[in-house]
Amino acid sequence: MTQTLVASRHEPHRSDPKPARAVRHGRAVPFFVVPFGVLFILFYLLPIGYAIVQSLYTVERTGTFGPAREVFGGLTQYERVFSDGAFWTSIGRVLVFGVVQVPVMLGLALILALLLDSGLVKGRRFFRLAFFVPYAIPGVIAAIMWGFLYSPNLSPLKPVTSAIDFLSADLVLWAMANVVTWVYVGYNMLIIYSALLAIPAEVYEAAKLDGASQFRIAWSIKIPLVMPAIVLTTVFSIIGTLQLLAEPQVFRSFSSAVTSTYTPNLTVYSTSSIPNFNLAAAFSVTLALTTFVLSFAFLRFTSRRGEQ
């Protein structure tokens, strides 16, 4: 009864009605589709194509001070991307970040959603709102705020921040993980909570009559049923992690440990400000492909496991 993004991708017709005589109304279709379609082509497909083309060129100079001209360089830029240690370090860094932060964030979101749904909690509405508030705060502002909260002399947690330097090279990645978690737990909780609400009460009526505990019901009935929602939030979180930009960019003002190539997107940005657009385009394409492959692989992996 639960159908997800994943499932509908494989069987798009399943829930469609049959507009039998729809052909008759075909003339209206361009009116509906063309405006979005044109913008999608211009500002989505075209840039992707253009980035790929740009990434295949290199800039050559004749002599040291000669005029620069772009020549087709084949995969030269990609060779540079693949031999760029800092870039792959940054990919590794965001992967480590994601492997820790995504499960912590989604685990917390799941626990809070289950608690809200369990009937153990009074004042559900208040808690739902309170947890969701940080989502209204854009990453840049949240990062600025937490940057101040971490700094030893301004923080309300002075005893903690004077003992532990959250902005040091060792901890700053996790300081940022906390900012991302703080912003997104409530949002993910709401997605899972909505999925829990969609489960009809009859489903666990029998379990309750048999005297199953709340924990047992959550573990054996609720979590399997909201799995599709968890998969969806995981995919969006993976995408978000690889794209990490606003938080590290802001933290550069607070901590010298955050370099200009700290995350893949920072590398794209700093390479384009050199400016070396061809190399930056190659970084961009590589990052987009990595993201696409990882989220697609995750969707595939989970949908195959679901079929078993």
């Binding site: 999608f40 500002f43 989505y44 075209l46 840039p47 992707i48 253009y50 980035a51 740009q54 995919v235 995408i239 978000g240 690889l242 794209q243 930009l245 997107n265 794209v268 940005y269 384009s272 657009f277 930056a280 385009a281 961009s284 990052l287 987009a288 993201t291 696409f292 989220s295 697609f296």
Partner: peptide
Amino acid sequence: SGVLVPATALALPLFLL
């Protein structure tokens, strides 16, 4: 498929265009 292409990946190509 466009849903899986993050907006930030488009920023630089858009700038070039």
